[in-house]
């Protein structure tokens, strides 16, 4: 096959994806940018371009507060999820006999809807929930614990559970790819199990860890279902504010501005993280 038809074939094969991305990512993004430059005047839109929305968003302490909290909560979710996912992925990749079965089991939470799972956590963590009833029945506490639900903790727990499979899979793949003789070579050269892990397995799985972190961090910053259901007022995140702008407050331009600012912040944090983590991974010798 010559080069031209090879290129043509490539173009043809990627055409559906290009079209899809073009329509569903580029177009909405352009619309979002346009909106952010307009102004809401009660029921009408003033279409003269202005940066007033940005000024308002950047000077509003509530926005800054929610943005920082969202990033911190997502960072916590990412750390917790990846830390819990790593041993699971490690076990499946290196120790488990029936890998396919284990991977299947991991996806089971996906068989029920996201909303349902969030509600399930509400039932577990609530005032009269499973956790409190069990602890009361066991006599470990005298009155129901109130710090379980409607705060950051509940948000982190719920999100970590929901996103765990997304962390396990990329890490599993990266561990699976490691040539077992590398670990034997590490042992042969005097490393114990922990040293081999820290000096060989971990640096060879940094790509998987970075992928897992991004897959979790980026979408969770924008999550609004979980914070609004289990977050209470302490657990509210930036997406809840954005939702309000597009709903009750009916200020789409401000909503669009907040969305774009959230995207930029997330992008910035993500890039800094990737560079930092890769550098760190390369420094391990």
């Amino acid at each position: 096959m010559n080069l031209r038809s090879e290129t043509a074939k490539g173009t043809a094969l990627s055409a559906p994806a290009t079209l899809y991305v073009g329509l569903l990512v580029a177009a909405p993004l352009i619309i979002l940018i346009a909106y952010s430059l307009w102004t809401q005047t009660y029921v009408d839109l003033d279409r003269t371009p202005t940066l007033a929305n940005y000024r308002e968003a950047l000077t509003d302490p509530l926005v800054r507060h929610l943005m920082i909290r969202s990033i911190l909560i997502s960072a916590a979710v990412t750390v917790v999820t990846v830390a819990l996912a790593y041993p699971i992925a490690y076990f499946i990749a290196l120790k488990a006999k029936k890998k396919t079965l284990w991977l299947l089991l991991i996806t089971i939470p996906f068989w029920s809807s996201y909303l349902l799972r969030v509600f399930a956590w509400k039932l577990i963590l609530g005032f009269n929930g499973v956790m409190n009833s069990a602890l009361l029945a066991l006599g470990l506490i005298d009155e129901p614990l109130t710090f379980l639900l409607y705060n950051e903790f509940a948000v982190v727990l719920t999100l970590a559970h929901a996103w765990a499979p997304f962390a396990i899979l990329p890490i599993f793949v990266s561990i699976q790819k490691i040539d077992p003789s590398l670990l034997e070579a590490a042992t042969d050269l005097g490393s114990n199990k922990l040293e081999s892990f820290l000096r060989v397995t971990l640096p060879l799985t940094t790509q998987g860890i970075i992928a897992a972190c991004l897959i979790i961090f980026i979408p969770t910053v924008g999550d609004y279902v979980t914070p609004s259901l289990v977050g209470g007022s302490d657990g509210k995140m930036i997406a809840n504010l954005i939702q309000v702008q597009f709903g009750a407050a009916n200020n789409w331009p401000l909503g669009a501005t907040l969305s774009l600012l959230a995207m930029l912040s997330v992008g910035f944090v993500a890039i800094v993280f990737v560079i930092g983590a890769s550098t760190l991974g390369r420094r391990i010798r």
Binding site: D179, S181, L182, E184, A185, D188, V200, P203, L204, R282
Partner: peptide, 12 residues
């Protein structure tokens, strides 16, 4: 110490 058949050079 061992020289492995695949050499097992640490790629990182």
């Amino acid at each position: 110490n061992m020289v492995f058949q695949s050499y097992a050079i640490f790629p990182h």
